[in-house]
């Protein structure tokens, strides 16, 4: 059966819901630290129990990212990462039976050509794209291009978003809504932001789409806390840190710990 990207994301959230748990979503940049190693790292995430993987497209000016991810993407770019590397990693994730989406700042997609990017990503088995610096006002051409390939355009909401904006964002988002839990850049934090539950509640009032919470989650306890009220828990910087410290084994171990947190939360 030929699943579209939007359907794939929908079914993995539905599966988790039937198990009364949240989804675990992990991020790593493609080509970090090298292309070969990044394939092994995402496979370790899959093996450790990550349900959906955000494959990062390394970009020279990552405004939303803190120092951990900045250094990782610099390393990836230094080792020659390109959009082709992203497609390679996306394929590896899809081959493991895990749903891959891409996380990319806007300019690399625009330079690749938005229709070409949507087409090649769909061919590689990608299910959607998270675009952290694309506002919905500027996003219309991309929403059309993604729609043409049944890819999910995934937009972010923030604690500062008005209810009116949240509603408009939810109207054009597919797959799931990415709720940025805190006002700030990516990176582990000691405590999960207390802004997150309120934001998730406001998004719930606007949409039936699943809601995943990201920014600042680094351990099983934090994951469990979010998994009580959100449909998905997103972990990024902590996976980069685990890869730096413990390689493939470190990433697999963190995935297991986080998956444990998500599974026992409710």
């Amino acid at each position: 059966m030929n699943h579209t990207g939007v359907d794939l994301i929908g079914s993995v959230f539905a599966q988790a819901k039937s198990e009364n748990r949240a989804l675990l979503i992990g991020y790593l940049p493609a080509g970090f630290p090298t292309l070969g190693e990044s394939v092994a790292l995402v496979e370790a995430m899959c093996d450790g129990g990550v349900d959906l993987i955000e494959v990062g497209l390394p970009y020279s000016d990552p405004l939303m990212d803190g120092p951990v991810i900045q250094q990782a993407v610099d390393q990836a770019l230094g080792n020659g990462a390109t959009p082709q590397s992203v497609l390679t990693v996306v394929k590896a994730v899809a081959n493991r039976g895990v749903v891959p989406v891409v996380m990319s700042y806007w300019n690399p997609i625009e330079q690749f050509g938005i229709d070409a990017f949507a087409h090649e990503l769909q061919q590689a088995g990608g299910a959607g794209v998270i675009t952290p610096d694309l506002t919905i006002e500027e996003g219309q051409p991309w929403i059309a291009a993604a729609g043409g390939q049944d890819l999910a355009p995934i937009f972010l909401v923030a604690p500062s978003s008005t209810n009116e904006r949240i509603s408009r964002i939810c109207q054009v988002t597919q797959g799931f809504v990415y709720a940025a839990s805190t006002m700030g850049v990516t990176g582990a934090r000691d405590r999960v932001s207390n802004l997150a539950p309120e934001l998730v509640a406001r998004v719930r009032a606007s949409t039936d789409l699943p809601i995943a919470v990201g920014l600042g989650v680094s351990n099983g306890a934090q994951a469990a806390e979010i998994a009580k009220y959100a449909d998905g828990v997103i972990v990024g910087s902590a996976f980069v840190t685990a890869a730096n410290a413990g390689g493939v084994a470190g990433v697999r171990e963190l995935a297991r710990e986080l998956a444990g947190g998500v599974h026992r939360a409710r």
Binding site: P132, F155, A158, S160, M183
Partner: peptide, 20 residues
């Protein structure tokens, strides 16, 4: 659209900054 100069300009920012 407001804030555009032909195809140029606009707003390509994290959602967290839109309200500001």
């Amino acid at each position: 659209l407001p804030g555009h100069y032909g195809p140029y300009g606009g707003r390509f920012v994290p959602e967290a900054l839109t309200s500001a």
